[in-house]
Amino acid sequence: MKKEEKVVVGISVGDLNGIGPEIIIKTYEDPRVLDLNTPVIFASGKTMQFFKNHFKSKINFFNIDTPDKLAHGKVNVVNVWREPVKIEFGKEDPKIGEYAIKSLEAATKALKDGKIDVLVTAPINKHNIQSDKFKFPGHTDYLAKILNGKSLMFMVSENLRVGLLTDHVPLKDAANHITEELIREKTTTVITSLKQDFGISKPKIAVLAINPHAGDNGVIGNEDDKVLKPTLEKIKSEGHLVYGPYSADSFFGSNTYTKFDAIIASYHDQGLIPFKTIAFGQGVNYTAGLDKVRTSPDHGTAYEIAGKGQADESSFKQAIYTAIKIYRKRLDFNHYSKNPLKKASR
């Protein structure tokens, strides 16, 4: 792909009983978004027509059988299925979960085969997608397996980036998962992503403690002193600007986070609660560590407002912008990595 060409954005439709189709439609009703990329929605023409009618949208879909037949300047819909689907807004339905996975699998295959440039995923229900054929806690783990990468959940906004050491594991098990190997793997992924995906040549990273007050010298647990702190000291001695562990309770409220290019949290809610408090609606979930680009909005299926026309598309729109921006950053990074003299002469 040439840099001046439109980025082809593949979209998995998510849970059809949730707000996914609504935020997709609202996003591409804005002609400015369509000017920036070529969307390819993996669903079916009949299904998307239902949502168009329900939300009284004027959007026009271009139905195709394979992503090879996409048309630039149009909102393309690949027919992953053709049968009619019963939509019941706000209802958790295993059958709807099956369609969410059909969409995701088709979109991921297109991404892997180079038929689309990036993937943006609408929200799924992590419960109703489970089956004998699909046993992943969410998008991130599935994509890591299919795309053979060391994935990391990286929540990003304009002024804040938060990565996770552990993501979808029970809190009672989180500390046991945190080993020197895991810390090194996730830290390396964050450093690499900041360089190639965000253009930060010497990233500065803060790591949050596992226990309250970083364990208070062993009074509240010894994991920080025995595992996290010595591993971070080793990584720092190797020339990386990695600091911590920081006590998480005051880190965000004191604006300490503004002094770093990224923060690595020890577990899911430690990182996502402050991130969503600070950046909700403008935040994006980015799967770092893969050789392909995937983003998603920072919210779920929102069953309580599904079908009511109340969904805010801001985060989904931002997910598209972020995917495009990262994709182009990677083109630059790969180009100038191979031609360092060109970078120096710019």
Rank of each mutant, 00 (worst) to 15 (best):
L228G: 02
K236G: 01
H213S: 05
S193Q: 08
D225F: 01
E185N: 10
Y243I: 04
T188S: 08
F198V: 05
L232R: 01
L165C: 13
N217K: 14
G218I: 11
K150M: 06
S157C: 07
A209D: 15
F251H: 12
V227F: 00
Y257V: 08
N159H: 14
K172Q: 07
P212M: 05
K150G: 09
S237N: 12
L241A: 14
T256F: 00
F251M: 07
H177A: 00
Y243T: 06
P230A: 01
V156L: 06
T256P: 01
I178P: 09
V219Q: 13
T187E: 02
A214L: 10
D167P: 08
N148R: 13
I183P: 00
K186N: 00
F251L: 09
L228E: 06
H168G: 05
I220P: 02
F198D: 03
E223L: 04
S237I: 03
E158W: 12
P170M: 03
F198N: 05
S151M: 15
T231A: 12
D197T: 09
G163A: 09
T179G: 00
I146L: 11
K234Q: 10
K226G: 06
V242H: 04
T256C: 04
V156H: 02
K236L: 01
L194T: 11
E233Q: 13
L152C: 15
I178F: 02
S201K: 12
N222Q: 13
A214N: 14
S193P: 06
T256E: 13
